[in-house]
Simulated scan of single mutants.
Amino acid sequence: MARALRQHVDEEILDRAAALFAQHGFEQTSLKALADAVGLSKAGLLHHYPSKEALYAAAQRFSAVRCGQVVEQVADLPPGPARDRRVLELLTDTALDRPGLVALLFRPVTTPEAHNADHDALLARLFAIDPSDEERLVRVTGALGALAVLSLAAHYRGEVTAWRPRIVETCLNALGHPSAG
């Protein structure tokens, strides 16, 4: 029981820290702002993570693990609408559960200095993107942008459960797949 509580606390800390890192970048996020966001003193936060760098690295790893789980769950699905739907369902569930992690994950889409080849490779694995298919890349980027904005709006409005299917359908439409209903 204590271990599960500790894991939940760590995930909450990582999610809130990831949100700040995504919003302000690593350099512009202070240790005090991180501690305030998670409801701890700086000393209390440093008890969990020895430095801002360690917290950032842990948030990045947690985000990568969550994405790796999605990749594993869709690896056997062939490219196409069914795979896209499953990826979007899994990413939406993660975004609604841990919005900070998803904001950090999507930061390379919205922030040019955060863009990197690892992020492109992740998108290629998730959505089976052919690097030469620029239309598909634009559609995936649009779908992920919609997912990020809509999942945050759902949180702010307290409509997580009601909005989930609408978020998935909106993202599928962005990918060019006809709506199921």
Rank of each mutant, 00 (worst) to 15 (best):
E12V: 12
A124Y: 04
A146S: 10
T92F: 05
T170S: 13
T161M: 12
L96I: 06
P108Y: 06
P79V: 00
R16W: 13
L46N: 03
E169T: 10
A75T: 01
L90C: 01
A2E: 13
V9C: 12
T94V: 08
T161Y: 12
A43C: 01
G181E: 15
V102C: 10
E89K: 04
A2S: 13
H115V: 06
E11H: 15
T94Y: 07
A2K: 15
R98S: 06
P99N: 06
A59C: 01
R83L: 01
H8F: 14
T110N: 11
L88P: 07
L91V: 03
P99T: 07
T170V: 09
L45Y: 05
H8K: 15
A148L: 14
R3S: 12
R66L: 03
L175N: 05
A19H: 13
A54F: 02
A75G: 00
D130M: 03
A4C: 11
Q69M: 01
R66T: 00
G158A: 06
Q23E: 15
A124V: 02
H47Q: 02
P108V: 10
E135F: 11
L91Q: 06
N116G: 07
I129K: 02
M1H: 14
G176C: 08
D97Y: 10
L144A: 03
V38M: 08
A124E: 07
L126N: 03
D76E: 05
V38L: 05
D97T: 10
H115I: 08
D93W: 01
T92I: 03
L172C: 08
R166P: 10
V160Q: 09
G44V: 08
H155P: 12
D76A: 01
V168Q: 09
R61G: 00
C171W: 11
A128G: 00
H155W: 13
H24A: 15
S30N: 13
D118N: 09
P178S: 12
H24N: 15
D130A: 05
D15S: 10
K42N: 03
V140Q: 05
R85P: 02
V109K: 06
A180R: 15
R85Q: 00
D84H: 04
V71M: 03
H115R: 12
Q23K: 15
A121I: 02
F106Y: 12
K42V: 12
R85V: 00
